[in-house]
């Protein structure tokens, strides 16, 4: 039971932080399919920082660990400016822009990884070895039955995510900027009439989305994959988008969706182990989270409502 919670949380939380990024972007009215590329690019920049400062063997240094996340955030944010440029300034179709960002991220990071390995480390390799992040257990709290598992074997990044998520929630629902952002997604003309710059608000929202996606990507690079390589592009970003829509573009329901994905996934693995079935059966139980989601959506989708101006290019002169 405790394993289910531990593994479930370490999968759900990175997904959650990427989904929050998605919420920021889409609530401001910009469709964001680029999360997949943003998380990969962010993870690339973070991993690049790690290997450049500490070599290819991986390191235990905590300082480097936290800086890696900082750089992943910056990387995701800078790369997301491309999405902002296309969607806000060049009035491009937001779907095509998202897909382009993904294709370019995959190609660029694969190419640069090879180049850096060749020129800096003199070895032909298409990945950066990172190792798995160390974990910690909160002393007293972890002794509580069942709930204690939440405080056992925690990755440090899970704490980062929770802190960032709380801030993100506060900004989105309790700050002036958050109000403007949400208004941009439903009625940008009203925001414009109130004297605010729609383009600027949307650009910042996309940048937040990039930074948060970078954190998410770095988490996966530091946990599941233990390296940066093309294996980071297995659809985490798309899953985060699904969680966001499932969560009706609201932060707390989205957390629920992410936890559902995470727990159903880890429970599935656990069931296979308990039943002592061959590992190929894990594929079968891995369908459970997604089938469950579809079933749940049947009941919850009635109230599903996308931001009104989502995907629309803002045109000042339009009525």
């Amino acid at each position: 039971m405790s394993r289910i919670i531990i593994d479930g949380l370490s999968f759900a939380l990175p997904l959650f932080i990427m989904a929050i990024g998605g919420i920021y972007s889409e609530r401001s009215g910009v469709t964001n399919l680029a999360i997949e590329g943003l998380q990969g690019f962010g993870a690339f920049v973070g991993a690049l920082f790690v290997v450049l400062t500490s070599g290819t063997q991986g390191t235990d240094s905590q300082v480097i660990f936290y800086f890696a996340f900082l750089f992943a955030m910056i990387g995701g944010m800078v790369y997301s400016l491309l999405h902002a440029l296309l969607c806000v300034k060049f009035k491009a179709n937001q779907v095509i822009s998202g897909v382009v960002i993904n294709i370019l991220a995959m190609a660029l990071t694969a190419f640069l990884t090879k180049q850096v390995n060749k020129s800096v480390f003199n070895q032909p390799s298409d990945k950066f070895q990172l190792g798995v992040s160390s974990r910690f257990t909160v002393p007293v709290l972890s002794d509580i039955p069942v709930v204690g598992a939440v405080f056992t074997n925690v990755y440090p990044f899970e704490v980062i995510i929770i802190v960032v998520a709380v801030i993100a929630w506060f900004v989105l629902y309790r700050s002036r900027y958050g109000l403007h952002l949400r208004a941009c997604g439903d009625n940008p003309h009203a925001v414009d009439a109130a004297g605010r710059n729609v383009g600027k608000i949307r650009t910042v929202a996309i940048m937040v989305s990039g930074a948060l996606s970078g954190i998410g990507g770095m988490c996966f690079a530091y946990s599941i994959s233990a390296q940066f390589s093309e294996s980071i592009y297995v659809g985490y970003g798309y899953l985060a988008i699904a969680a966001m829509i499932f969560g009706n573009w609201k932060i707390l329901p989205t957390l629920g969706a992410c936890l559902l994905f995470g727990f159903a996934r880890s429970a599935g693995y656990q069931i296979v182990q308990v039943l002592e079935k061959p590992s190929s059966y894990s594929d079968l139980v891995m369908t459970l989270p997604y089938i469950l989601t579809l079933l749940l959506l049947i009941f919850f989708s009635k109230y599903n409502r996308a931001p009104k101006a989502l995907g629309e290019i803002y045109d000042k002169g339009k009525r």
Partner: peptide, 9 residues
């Protein structure tokens, strides 16, 4: 969402 879910399934 449904197509992404079906992708995984």
């Amino acid at each position: 969402v449904s197509t992404i879910m079906i992708n995984y399934i």
